[in-house]
Amino acid sequence: MRAYAAIASRQFQSALQYRGNYALGMLSSLALVLAMFFFWHAGFDGRSAIAGYSWAQTKTYLLIGYLSANLVATSSEARMSESIRTGNVLCDLLLPVDFQGARLSEALGSVAAQGVPALLVTLAVAVAVAFSGVLPPSGIGAALGAAVALGLGVVLKSAIVYASALVCFWTTNYVGIAWSRAALTNLLCGALVPLAFFPAGVAAVLRWLPFAGITDTPARIYLGQLVGVHAFLAVCLEAAWTVAVLFGGRVLWRAASAQVTIHGG
């Protein structure tokens, strides 16, 4: 366990060292959230509700989506691609720690460096728009439930990012992988559009997929749309998916590590 803590701490430090990086990464996703914000603002012109969401609820949902998107370090693809390209991955393999465990520790280390400022910025944004009515949590239970779901979502998303980063064993183009993974998770978890805005049947299916746990579940618990047993079941589903994706990552890793070739002689 100490080894993993050391790896997480190392990643925390190097994430801090490239201080400009995560601030810029945050701004980058802020651009998209901003686009959505203004788009819906224009869309709500003359309407009081869309798919049962008021403008205030939509705003709150998007803010939680932004928070959840930035709580997770998404530079894993870049790091892993680099270490495969340079052959450093061999050094990682020599360490007496589990590869997936080490990468997840790195991700959590980055969360500490990256997520804390993201949290602060989100709070600042929340305060700034408070006057235009971002909603508070619907109750103490909702606040706690949302926090649990959000925390679980961090692990879930890290596991998803890890699995997609393994694709770098087959391609040098990590940028493309990172972008399509981001497009997929951001759309299907609700970070861009509340899942309720999808056609009802599609939304129901999406809520059964692993991505919903990242944004939709915490956001709906926060807004009081998921309460009691329903909220509990949603969090259970999220936990189940977390375990499943972690396991899937291990299977994928076994296939990927067979790809490791040693360059030169």
């Binding site: 788009f39 869309g43 309407r47 869309i50 798919a51 694709v167 087959w170 391609t171 040098t172 183009n173 493309g176 992988i177 972008w179 399509s180 497009a183 997929l184 759309l187 861009l192 559009v193 805005f197 999808f198 056609p199």
Partner: peptide, 28 residues
């Protein structure tokens, strides 16, 4: 593999973008 993955990944990104647009405009 690399070549196809690159193109496939990009196609996926853009198709998702289009779906997004569709969802958004289905409501307004």
């Amino acid at each position: 593999t690399d070549f196809l993955l690159t193109i496939g990944a990009s196609a996926l990104t853009q198709v998702l973008g289009l779906i997004f647009l569709g969802v958004v405009f289905s409501r307004i």
